[in-house]
Amino acid sequence: MEKIPTLFVRDFSARPAVVLPEVSQGCEWVINGEGEATRKYDGTCVMLDPAGHWWARREVKPGKTPPPNYVTISTDEQTGRTVGWEPVAQSAFAKIHAEAVKNSTVETAGTYELLGPKINRNPDGYADHVLMPHGWSIPTIQRDFATAPRDYDGLREWLHARPYEGIVWHHPDGRMVKIKAGDFSTPEPTALPNAG
């Protein structure tokens, strides 16, 4: 799985980096209303390949040596980070992943989000480690995501009003685009009316 492009152009001069109200090249299809909006979970990506082997997504910083058996997918031109897969068994998530496999029903090859108590501070409050198929959500969340706007201001407001990490749009041809609530600068507080 290649790194999914972000809907809006990132301003890397800001700390932390934020997005600008400018659509990233190649992501215009989202603004044009194409593709389905799905929930982006705050976990770590793993993949079950067609041969039945599990892989963990891993980024390697510029100048660092990739781990053994690492399969490179791509390198980000702006950050210099390389995205790829390493066997789950040698990853930092091996034990947690084994628990998640026992707690989940995984029947098909594909990508999954590894979620649970020891992953990214567990923002969704999972009691156990689980594997969530990418693009899947319960029907009430699917309906909520169908209401997501596709413009900068609307998305910023929509995401900041909800507990979700972000959105991933899936195009019928396989392309994907993402945006996270944290990609936007924090909204300005609303001024309280003068009580006097």
Results as ranks from 00 to 15, higher is better:
Glu2Cys: 12
Lys3Ile: 05
Pro5Cys: 09
Pro5Glu: 05
Leu7Asn: 00
Leu7Met: 04
Val9Leu: 11
Val9Lys: 14
Arg10Gly: 10
Asp11Ala: 09
Asp11Glu: 07
Ser13Gly: 09
Ala17Asp: 07
Val18Trp: 13
Val19Ala: 08
Glu22Asp: 14
Val23His: 01
Ser24Pro: 01
Cys27Thr: 04
Glu28Lys: 04
Glu28Ile: 02
Glu28Thr: 02
Val30Ser: 02
Ile31Trp: 02
Ile31Asn: 00
Asn32Gly: 13
Gly33Ala: 05
Glu34Lys: 01
Glu34Phe: 03
Glu34Pro: 02
Glu34Tyr: 01
Glu36Leu: 14
Glu36Val: 11
Ala37Ile: 01
Ala37Gln: 01
Thr38Arg: 12
Arg39Val: 04
Arg39Leu: 10
Asp42Asn: 14
Thr44Ile: 14
Val46Tyr: 15
Asp49Asn: 09
Asp49His: 07
Ala51Tyr: 10
Ala51Val: 15
Gly52Arg: 13
Trp55Cys: 11
Ala56Leu: 15
Arg57Val: 10
Arg58Pro: 14
Val60Trp: 02
Thr65Gln: 12
Pro67Cys: 09
Pro68Cys: 10
Tyr70Asn: 02
Val71Arg: 14
Ile73Arg: 15
Glu77Gln: 15
Gln78Ser: 11
Thr82Asn: 08
Gly84Asp: 04
Val88Gln: 06
Gln90Cys: 06
Ala92Lys: 13
Phe93Thr: 09
Ala94Asn: 04
Lys95Leu: 13
Lys95Asn: 06
Ile96Trp: 14
His97Gln: 07
His97Met: 03
Ala98Lys: 06
Glu99Arg: 08
Val101Ser: 02
Lys102Gln: 08
Asn103Lys: 07
Val106Glu: 08
Glu107Val: 15
Glu107Thr: 12
Glu107Leu: 12
Thr108Gly: 14
Tyr112Asn: 02
Tyr112Trp: 05
Glu113Cys: 03
Glu113Ile: 12
Glu113Asn: 05
Leu114Val: 05
Gly116Tyr: 02
Pro117Tyr: 15
Pro117Glu: 12
Lys118Met: 06
Asn120Gln: 11
Asn122His: 03
Pro123His: 03
His129Met: 07
Val130Ala: 11
Leu131Glu: 07
Leu131Gln: 08
Met132Lys: 06
Met132Asn: 09
His134Val: 11
Trp136Gln: 06
Ser137Gln: 15
Ser137Ala: 11
Ser137Phe: 03
Ser137Val: 07
Ile138Gly: 06
Thr140Tyr: 12
Thr140Ile: 14
Ile141Ala: 01
Gln142Asn: 13
Arg143Tyr: 03
Arg143Pro: 00
Phe145Leu: 00
Phe145Ser: 00
Ala146Trp: 00
Ala146Asn: 02
Thr147Leu: 02
Thr147Ser: 08
Arg150Val: 05
Leu155His: 03
Leu155Phe: 10
Trp158Ser: 07
Leu159Gly: 00
Leu159Tyr: 01
Ala161Leu: 07
Ala161Pro: 00
Ala161His: 09
Ala161Gly: 04
Arg162Ala: 05
Arg162Tyr: 04
Pro163Phe: 01
Pro163Ile: 01
Glu165Tyr: 00
Trp169Ser: 01
His170Leu: 00
His170Phe: 05
His171Cys: 06
Arg175Tyr: 08
Met176Cys: 00
Ile179Glu: 10
Ile179Leu: 13
Lys180Gln: 14
Phe184Cys: 03
Thr186Cys: 06
Thr186Trp: 08
Pro187Gln: 06
Glu188Phe: 10
Ala191Leu: 11
Leu192Asn: 13
Leu192Arg: 12
Asn194His: 10
Asn194Ser: 09
Asn194Pro: 04
Gly196Pro: 10
Gly196Arg: 11
